[in-house]
């Protein structure tokens, strides 16, 4: 299977005296169409790995290639375009813009990508309706439940049809029921062929929908096991 993401001896050290490497010589390839879970204790480098793949951070050493593009060679403007067109980001605490409505939040990436307004709205409702939050489109995110906000974040992440979805603890701030709903959503996305890298503490989430689980400990890959997803 073709690799969508390739990390080659990636290293990340933050500029603090005596600091341990957040990522220490990580090499891995992530296949297209798969859902890969990244797990590990706090401080193991999970979020750092995600940030580097998203182009939100630059590695201290090594190379990162996504969809054939070497991220090290891109300047900030090119990285922004890469995130707009290739990446969909989902965060633990949703990171929605509170002064915009649900619909406006979902539309932002499309508008930044200069998608036609009508087409963008159509695409947005195409995502909101199956997520069950189309009626909440004119509301402010602060008035929604955690689960609803995370669904808005998912819609926002998908609006530009990204090649890769990166989710950082997507159920970390949710109650059990909402978490289950998000788990179902990820299963559906995986089934539709979306490539997903998912950082999670949640064993149930990882085992419930991933094709592969990578364990990070102290910035290095400690275990890497392919799995058979149980539907």
């Amino acid at each position: 299977m073709d690799s969508l993401v390739e990390l080659d001896h990636v290293r990340k050290v933050y500029d603090v005296a005596g600091a341990q490497a957040a990522l220490d010589d990580v090499s891995l390839a992530i296949a297209a169409g798969n859902l890969t879970a990244v797990m590990g204790p706090s401080g193991s480098g999970k979020s750092t790995l995600l940030n580097i793949i998203a182009g939100l951070d630059r590695p201290t050493g090594g190379t990162v290639r996504v969809n054939g593009v070497e991220l090290n060679r891109l300047n900030e403007a090119a990285l922004a375009k890469y995130r707009r067109t290739q990446i969909g980001l989902i965060f633990q605490f949703f990171n929605l813009l509170n002064n915009l409505t649900v619909l406006e939040n979902v539309l932002i990436p499309a508008q930044l990508n200069r998608m036609n307004g009508r087409e963008a709205r159509r695409r947005a409702f195409e995502l909101l309706e199956p997520l069950g939050i189309a009626e909440q489109a004119p509301m402010q995110p602060a008035r929604l439940s955690g689960g609803q906000r995370q669904r808005v974040a998912i819609a926002r992440a998908l609006i530009n049809r990204p090649a890769l979805v990166l989710a950082d603890e997507p159920t970390g701030a949710l109650d059990r029921r909402s978490g289950e709903q998000v788990l179902d959503l990820f299963r559906d996305l995986r089934a539709s062929g979306q490539t997903i890298v998912l950082v999670t503490h949640d064993q149930r989430l990882a085992e419930g929908c991933s094709d592969r689980i990578i364990q990070l400990v102290d910035g290095a890959v400690a275990a890497d096991s392919a799995r058979t997803v149980v539907a």
Binding site: A54, E76, A77, R83, R84, N95, L97, L112
Partner: peptide, 16 residues
């Protein structure tokens, strides 16, 4: 700062 970071994360270019 948070809102600006979110916008940059979803693809807002530096010039934007």
């Amino acid at each position: 700062a948070r809102d600006i970071a979110i916008l940059k994360a979803v693809g807002m270019a530096p010039a934007q």
